[in-house]
Design a protein around this nucleic acid. Structure first.
Length: 293
DNA sequence: CTTCGATCCTGGTAGC
DNA sequence: TGCTACCAGGATCGAA
C-alpha cells in the first residue's frame, strides 16, 4: 500500500523520466481511473494533448504533474494498488493498464527516456488521474483540504499539537486523518504508534506536548527509514511503487506481525479489527486507555 | 461543525 | 475440484 515514502519514490522517478516531456496522445482504458476528472476520459485525453509536464510535486499521498506555463496540473493518487510505470512503447500492456500517455520525440532531461511512455496501472482501481486548476499556492484545487505532511519543512508542529488536543477522537484515527497530517496510512500509523508505545485507541485530547512531539518524531523516522530503502529503486527505467519494496519485507516492527514476538519485550503481538481493517500492537508496550465507554 | 461508519474494487486465499 | 466468503484499505460521502 503506497504511503508517503512510496509516493515520494514515484515522484522522483517521474522527475527523472517524465519532467519536460510533451504529450502526444493519452489513452484512457478504464473509466474508473479518471473518475475524479469531471469531463470524463475523452475530455481528459483531449485537454492534455500537446501539453508539457513540469517538475512533479507531492503532498502526502497525492502527487501532481504541473503543466508547463499553465495553471493546471494532472493530479494522481495511487490508491491501494496503483503504479506509475515508465515503459518502452513496445512493451506488452500490463493486465491492469488503465491509462497510457505517449510523448513526442523531443524534450525531457533523460536521453534514455526516448521511446518510452507513461503508464498508470491499477488492479483495484482505487487510484486515478485527473486534471485540475491550481490554487494560488500551485496546489490542485481539489486537494486544498489536505494537510501538509510531516516531511514538509512548513509543517506546523504547534498547530498540529493544538489540533490533536481539540479533537475528540483517538490517536490512530487522527494519524489517518489527511486534513490534520497527510501521508500516513495504516502501516506507518501502526509502526509509529509501536515506536511511541501508544495504544491506537488513546484519546488525542490527553496527549501532552512532549508526547505528541515524540509521536511525530517517530512518524518522521519511520518514513525517512522507508525512503532510505525505497529511494534507490527509481534509478531505472521502472518507476516503481508497490507496497512490497524491500522495506516492507524486512523492517516492519508492528504491521502484519500478529502472534510474532514484540521486538522490544517479546510479548506476542496482537491484531484487532479496526475500522474495516486491522491494528497491530504489542499488548504490553502499548497499553489500552483505562476506560473509554 | 464534528465524528463515524459504509462504500467503492479485484485477486488471492481460507474453508467447506 | 469447485464454489463461496472474506480480506486488504484511502478517500469520500452522508448520517447522526
Amino acid at each position: 500500500m503506497p504511503e508517503l515514502p512510496e509516493v515520494e519514490v514515484v515522484r522522483r522517478g517521474l522527475e527523472r523520466w517524465v519532467a519536460g516531456r510533451t504529450i502526444e496522445t493519452v489513452e484512457v482504458l478504464h473509466p474508473r481511473a479518471v473518475r475524479r476528472h469531471v469531463g470524463g476520459g475523452a475530455d481528459f485525453a483531449e485537454r492534455l494533448r500537446g501539453e508539457t509536464f513540469a517538475v512533479p510535486q507531492r503532498r502526502g499521498k497525492y502527487l501532481w504533474l504541473p503543466l508547463a506555463g499553465r495553471d493546471l496540473s494532472v493530479l494522481g493518487h495511487l490508491g491501494m494498488s496503483g503504479q506509475l510505470l515508465v515503459q518502452p512503447e513496445d512493451a506488452p500492456d500490463e493486465k491492469h493498464l488503465r491509462i497510457r500517455v505517449r510523448f513526442t520525440g523531443s524534450g525531457g532531461s533523460a536521453a534514455e527516456a526516448a521511446g518510452t511512455e507513461l503508464r498508470f496501472v491499477d488492479q483495484r482501481t482505487f487510484g486515478g488521474l485527473s486534471l485540475h486548476e491550481n490554487t494560488a499556492d500551485g496546489l490542485p484545487d481539489v486537494i486544498a483540504h489536505i494537510a501538509r505532511d510531516p516531511l514538509d519543512p512548513l509543517f506546523d508542529e504547534v498547530s498540529y499539537h493544538l489540533a490533536l488536543r481539540a479533537r475528540r477522537t483517538t490517536v490512530k484515527r487522527a494519524l489517518l486523518d489527511q486534513s490534520l497530517i497527510s501521508g500516513v496510512g495504516n502501516i506507518y500509523a501502526d509502526e509509529a504508534l509501536w515506536r511511541a508505545r501508544l495504544h491506537y485507541e488513546r484519546p488525542t485530547a490527553h496527549l501532552t506536548r512532549p508526547r505528541s512531539a515524540e509521536l511525530l518524531g517517530h512518524v518522521r523516522d519511520v518514513m525517512n527509514a522507508a525512503l532510505a530503502v525505497g529511494g534507490t529503486s527509481f534509478d531505472s527505467l521502472y518507476v516503481n511503487v508497490n507496497g512490497e519494496s524491500g522495506y516492507f519485507d524486512r523492517s516492519l516492527d508492528a504491521y502484519g506481525r500478529e502472534d510474532e514476538p514484540c521486538r522490544r519485550c517479546g510479548t506476542p503481538m496482537r491484531r484487532r479489527p479496526w475500522m474495516n481493517r486491522s491494528s497491530y500492537f504489542c499488548p504490553r508496550c502499548q497499553r489500552p486507555p483505562r476506560v473509554a465507554s
